[in-house]
């Protein structure tokens, strides 16, 4: 099953190599699949299963547990409005009502032009800057209804800096070969690391 592009396949193999057990790369590979396609397809899950040595059902089991993985197409921009306590105390409910009426969809739905998916989200770790929201997991702080409208206009005008849904960090970790210690399966490690004392304990 081929889902990943050649570049992403090479990257996937590099990521798997960082872990003592390949299955640990499951979530990073699901992110990579979502970055490529905008959502996680069945084909992606099948190939991830092959890459990490498990079944596609196991991959689905993990994938379906996590909120961020979408198993159906979503908007180019996923807007998450925080609805937990700190934001709720500072007007998140009003912001959500405004967003629903402005976008013409209820939370959990995508606009008919495929541009925006609106979601009610849980605490986003920006509690002092309430109410907050995220566009593709990038924060906006102390958002008023007017600012929300401006934000939509900016996003729709396409010169905004937020990358499409699925792209998280735009900087990838790179471990240079000559600097890498390398991952070893735990069962192959028998002794204490060399920098510890002779008796093998700290």
């Amino acid at each position: 099953m081929t889902f990943f592009t050649d570049d992403n396949l090479a990257l996937a193999e590099e990521i798997i190599g960082r872990y003592p057990k390949p299955r640990s790369a499951m979530i990073p590979l699901l992110h990579l699949a979502q970055e490529q396609e905008g959502w996680v397809t069945d084909e992606a899950m099948t190939q991830i299963g092959e890459l990490v040595g498990t079944t596609s059902a196991e991959v689905l089991g993990t994938c379906s547990f996590y909120e961020m993985f979408k198993r159906h197409p979503v908007g180019k921009y996923v807007i998450n409005i925080c609805t937990t306590m700190s934001c709720a105390l500072m007007g998140a409910g009003e912001l959500m009502e405004h967003a629903e009426s402005r976008l013409g969809v209820r939370a959990g739905s995508t606009t008919s032009d495929g541009l925006f998916t609106l979601e009610g989200a849980e605490c986003q770790a920006a509690c002092t800057e309430a109410p907050c929201l995220q566009v593709n997991y990038r924060h906006q702080y102390r958002v008023t209804t007017d600012q929300f409208d401006e934000l939509l206009d900016e996003l729709a005008s396409s010169d905004h800096a937020v990358p499409d849904h699925g792209v998280l960090s735009q900087i990838r970790q790179h471990i240079p070969k000559d600097r890498s210690v390398g991952a070893v399966p735990p069962e192959e490690v028998k002794a204490a690391p060399v920098w510890l004392s002779e008796d093998g304990d700290s």
Binding site: R18, Y19, S24, I27, P28, L30, H31, F65, Y66, E67, M68, F69, E122, C123, L168, S169, Q173, I175, S180, V181, G182, A183, P193, V194, W195
Partner: peptide, 15 residues
């Protein structure tokens, strides 16, 4: 002699 890799890993939304 001290050697250690630090691997960056992201979650996917689960409190």
């Amino acid at each position: 002699e001290f050697s250690v890799d630090i691997v960056l890993h992201w979650g996917a939304g689960a409190y």
